[in-house]
């Protein structure tokens, strides 16, 4: 399936990526190539096949409800591009 520039723009927005207009043409042709390859999947007869999300069919181990994690705030905030008053800072969020 070909993927046009408009779709690239929509998907890029969903993924929070900025794709400039000149890059958009290039990207749309690359993605179309990839999707053309991926479209081989449509040949597969999967009518009665259940999806397989994990290679091993095992189940989730469960953790005891016990506090094990220390306070790492100081360490974490040092990694932050912007922090103040113990919080990570971002441009103002308007709901």
């Amino acid at each position: 399936m070909a993927i046009d520039q408009e779709t690239v723009a929509r998907v890029a927005h969903l993924a929070r990526l900025h794709i400039s207009e000149e890059d958009g043409a290039e990207m749309s042709s690359r993605l179309s190539d990839i999707l053309a390859m991926v479209d081989q999947l449509q040949q597969a007869d999967v009518a009665d096949v259940a999806p397989l999300a994990h290679p091993l069919e095992v189940t989730q181990p469960l953790r005891k409800d016990e506090v094990t994690e220390p306070d790492i705030r100081e360490q974490a905030l040092k990694l932050a591009p912007a922090a103040e008053g113990g919080c990570f800072l971002v441009p103002r969020v308007i709901e």
Partner: peptide, 21 residues
Amino acid sequence: RTKIFSGASTAFGAEPNSQAC
């Protein structure tokens, strides 16, 4: 006592980000 996917405390009212592992 702890989060759904981590062993950090859920106690209310702690200093910001002090209970985020």
